[in-house]
């Protein structure tokens, strides 16, 4: 029994059924082990490969410069920015707003720099449901190409204080 000491010689070979099960399980684990790196190489949707460190105050400066350079309007006090094709895009998370609202073009590749100037936040692109952890002091660099036109929303899915549930951003793809 599992609550008493086993007999003296318990180091016994496994039965046929046990060996079969363990072999199948091990093979399946090996398939899984290979799948992840394989998808990393042949797949096109991966998390940030080359993240960078950036101080929150420096990130604020570059993201403000980005907004000033390409600003095309404003909605409810939030700047709307339309960067040129292939530009570096800065999306700033802070409690409890995503700045700016972005206007992007379908089929164009953008280099996203997403970081926070205060707490941790969660970038969650709706309705696609793509999620990334946003950490102050670190730049989550992602190459993104919009493949369909429309309005997308960014919700925050990392708890960031009492107003967490009001933190919504917007990306308009045309």
């Amino acid at each position: 029994m599992a609550i008493t000491s086993p007999e003296k010689y318990w180091w016994k070979p496994a039965d046929k059924e046990e060996k079969l099960w363990i072999t199948i399980a091990l093979l399946w684990c090996l398939v899984l082990t290979i799948m992840m790196p394989l998808m990393h190489v042949i797949g096109t949707q991966n998390p940030s490969v080359n993240p960078m460190k950036i101080r929150p105050q420096d990130y604020r400066t570059v993201s403000e410069a980005f907004i000033e350079k390409y600003k095309v309007g404003e909605e409810k006090g939030i700047p709307i920015v339309e960067p040129p094709d292939g530009a570096d895009v800065y999306l700033r998370a802070q409690a409890w707003i995503w700045t700016p609202i972005l206007k992007l073009k379908k089929g164009v590749n953008y280099k996203f720099h997403i970081s926070s100037t205060d707490l941790m936040h969660g970038f969650s692109l709706m309705p696609l449901n793509m999620n990334f952890q946003i950490v102050p002091g670190h730049d989550n660099i992602l190459n993104m190409t919009p493949t369909s036109a429309g309005t997308f929303h960014i919700i925050c899915n990392e708890f960031c204080g009492i107003g967490h549930h009001t933190m919504i951003g917007k990306i308009i793809v045309s």
């Binding site: 899984l32 082990t33 950490v135």
Partner: peptide
């Protein structure tokens, strides 16, 4: 999905090492 460690580091830990622990659970499951 963190902007920190390299993907290779993360993959070694979450594929190779994690699945050996999964194997253990599969053994108990039998």
């Amino acid at each position: 999905t963190d902007p920190t460690l390299s993907p290779y580091h993360k993959m070694a830990n979450t594929s190779y090492f994690m699945y050996l622990a999964v194997l253990a659970s599969m053994i108990h499951a039998l």
